[in-house]
Design a protein around this nucleic acid. Structure first.
Length: 399
DNA sequence: GATCCACAGGAAATAGTGGCTT
DNA sequence: AAGCCACTATTTCCTGTGGATC
């Protein structure tokens, strides 16, 4: 008599969205200082003055994007009631994996009238796309706040951040105002900027510090309240997730992931409550998921090199120097019917990248006249997991 | 102390794709 | 069609580097 869905009512989630990555909370917890600074920096907009440029710093998962979305919504509402304020436009652009040209291009496309066709993907110079941006800004008029998320992923940020904040003073635009809001996961980003850019852009800098365990617990308790059926989530689970994340990097996203996966684990086991054992089990799953995404982001050759290193690791042939890695890599590339890279240099480039990303461990060797100087690499991950993930990825692309 | 090995690391050149303007 | 342009991923070329060896 019981059908396949008969025990669905026992589900422990009430509103799982509250634990998803793109959930936007309607109130922001534990970021009062940052919000206050933010508010101050945005005040000019309310009086129709040129907005300040704002930079946000802080690791991933510290609420930079959430606070920004929150602030922009609030600002939009407030502007509507203020007679002095110009019409406000907020544009968000994610810079991950983009170039200056493509970022400005997406901006232009957002400003273009509905009927117009998109700005060309290629074929035009960066100056052209900026020119189009300015005419579109002036056509719209008003105040524009441009949010560049993950701005540190952009190479050649200088051009972008030099051009845009100055557009008005140089006379590229006259009927509109532009403010730049940059979001960076990288603290050293500031040092990479040219001095010219630094002083214009750095009118307001807000840095987000890691959450401590107490703050995380408050955030998690709030989310757990919404996400889980009442009373299902143990306080110990919240405390455990907060503790793990606080010890790692004070990352709220990580903590929330732990809670969500912990809930899934409990559900899979058929348990009616979520406790800290579930969170501990979730920790490994979350870590593995992270690693899979990071590996997936790598180019094919880099992935093949990771696979090569995993094999070498299994045979106890690590640490290995680039030459031996290369010969193994070639045969592995062949087995996947991929054209291998031909030069040693390109292998070394990839190895060096992978080392910088924390996938590989590297030893500096110097045997003087009888061996010279070279590096030896070994895998800084569990080889079995790497091989597993690799075959998962490989299986996805075949069928 | 000069020399030398076998790379490391950076810059520039090359190749290849796609697509614009004139 | 010619001449640019953006962008990516190599390859080629060049200039260190630093301890062992002479």
């Amino acid at each position: 008599m019981p059908g396949p869905f008969s025990d669905v009512e026992r589900s422990i989630f009430a509103a799982k969205e509250a634990l998803s990555e793109d959930y936007q909370p309607d109130r922001i917890l534990e970021r009062d200082d940052e919000i206050e600074e933010y508010r101050h920096a945005l005040e000019d907009v309310l009086f129709g003055r040129t907005p300040q440029n704002i930079m946000l710093y802080g690791r991933a998962g510290l609420g930079k994007t959430a606070v920004t979305t929150y602030m922009m919504d609030a600002l939009r509402e407030e502007v509507a009631t203020r007679p002095d304020a110009d019409e406000l436009f907020v544009h968000e652009v994610n810079c991950n994996g983009q170039t200056v040209y493509s970022v400005v291009r997406t901006l232009v496309n957002k400003l273009l009238p509905e009927t117009a066709s998109d700005f060309p993907k290629r074929g035009l110079s960066t100056a052209d796309v900026f020119e189009e941006l300015y005419t579109q800004l002036d056509r719209r008029g008003g105040t524009h706040l441009v949010v560049f998320d993950e701005i540190d992923h952009l190479d050649d940020v200088d051009t972008l951040l030099y051009e845009l904040p100055r557009a008005r003073s140089i006379g590229h635009i006259t009927d509109s105002k532009v403010g730049v809001i940059g979001i960076s996961n990288n603290y050293t980003f500031r040092q990479d900027l040219s001095p010219k850019v630094k002083d214009t852009l750095m009118e307001a800098e807000i840095s987000f510090s890691p959450y401590d365990a107490g703050e995380l617990r408050a955030i998690l308790a709030d989310r757990a309240d919404r996400a889980f059926v009442d009373g299902v989530c143990d306080e110990s689970a919240v405390a455990r997730a907060a503790a793990i994340a606080a010890k790692d990097r004070g990352n709220a996203r990580q903590a929330i992931d732990l809670l969500r996966v912990g809930g899934e684990v409990a559900k899979k086991h058929g348990d009616s409550r979520v406790d800290d054992d579930h969170i501990i089990e979730a920790q490994e799953l979350v870590q593995r998921g992270r690693l899979r995404n990071r590996i997936r982001d790598q180019t094919q050759h880099a992935q093949l090199l990771l696979e090569t290193l995993a094999h070498l690791e299994n045979r106890d042939e690590t640490p290995a120097r680039s030459k031996t890695i290369k010969t193994r890599y070639v045969s592995i590339a062949d087995s996947h019917i991929v054209d291998p890279l031909t030069t040693l240099k390109s292998i070394q480039n990839h190895l060096s990248d992978l080392h910088m990303l924390g996938f590989l461990r590297r030893i500096d060797r110097n045997r003087g006249e009888s061996g010279g100087r070279y590096y030896e690499y070994s895998l800084d991950l569990d080889p079995e997991i790497v091989l597993d993930i690799r075959s998962e990825i490989e299986a996805e692309r075949e069928p």
